[in-house]
């Protein structure tokens, strides 16, 4: 079985998000980049499924050379090889198209992504790849088991869950529950340096969306402090002042 895992390179979760003075660019100065936390889950499950040497795990990333540390980390965690499509990942449509084009010519049984990238949070890439490849896509899964042909999946829905059966090939986006992230060991880190990393050029596709500007949430007014004995007053304020109950 051939498994493809899509990985994105995102600002560390502790990053304070700021923008250029004209608010059109994200300030990357001093920002530490990491492997997207959800992609770690997808990668961990792919590696578990490949155990016993029956499958191969390829990671793919659309991005510039600055994201190679993230790709090497995925290799250190246990992917067999990696592909980087050399282009700025300008939006989900562009990224998905590149990955779909690569997958078309290389034939994968299973493609996994993270539930969302923590920078653009589109939750778009998995379903777009599914559409480009005309294969089933299942978004926000919490469990994935397979007998080699058919897979059973649990997907999250508002206030509940849905059980799904599907045959290969398909694509799914992974959330918590699918697997525990794996921490690379020394051997993994050493071998990651020599594992194959192929760099390919991007293909052209029309541009449908562009990010014009950014803003940050307006700061809240100052906090009104109450004592532990003033719970009735709090309820009163929530009703009369905040008008939320």
């Amino acid at each position: 079985m051939k498994i493809l895992v899509c990985v994105s390179n995102v600002p560390d979760t502790t990053t304070k998000i700021t923008f250029s003075s004209d608010n059109t660019q994200f300030n990357t100065a001093g920002v530490q980049y990491i492997l997207n936390p959800y992609d770690e889950i997808a990668l961990a499950r792919a590696i578990e499924l490949s155990e016993g040497g029956k499958s191969t795990v390829t990671v793919i990333h659309v991005g510039e050379s600055s994201s190679e540390p993230t790709i090497r980390k995925a290799l250190a965690i246990g992917a067999d090889d990696a592909v980087r499509i050399n282009a700025f990942p300008r939006d989900a449509y562009f990224v998905s198209f590149q990955i779909a084009e690569y997958a078309k010519s290389n034939g994968f049984d299973l493609i996994l992504t993270g539930r969302e990238s923590i920078d653009y949070n589109g939750s778009q890439v998995a379903a777009m790849i599914g559409e480009f490849l005309d294969i089933p896509s299942i978004s926000i899964i919490k469990k994935l088991n397979t007998d080699g042909n058919s897979s059973s999946i649990e997907r999250e829905i508002e206030g509940g869950k849905e059980m799904i059966k599907v045959d290969f090939p398909f694509i799914a986006s992974c959330a918590e529950g699918v697997a525990e992230p794996k921490i690379p060991n020394m051997r993994g880190i050493m071998s990651a340096r020599t594992k194959p990393l192929q760099v390919l050029e991007a293909k052209e596709i029309e541009k449908l969306v562009s990010f014009k500007s950014y803003s940050t949430p307006a700061p809240r007014g100052s906090v009104k402090m109450l004592t532990p004995d003033e719970t009735e007053k709090l309820v009163e304020l929530l009703h009369t002042e905040a008008k939320v109950i």
Binding site: I17, Y120, S210, F211, Y214, T216
Partner: peptide
């Protein structure tokens, strides 16, 4: 955007 840390204005062309 940025997991609720910011907002983005996107143009659909």
């Amino acid at each position: 955007a940025f997991s609720g840390k910011a907002f983005a204005l996107v143009e659909l062309s």
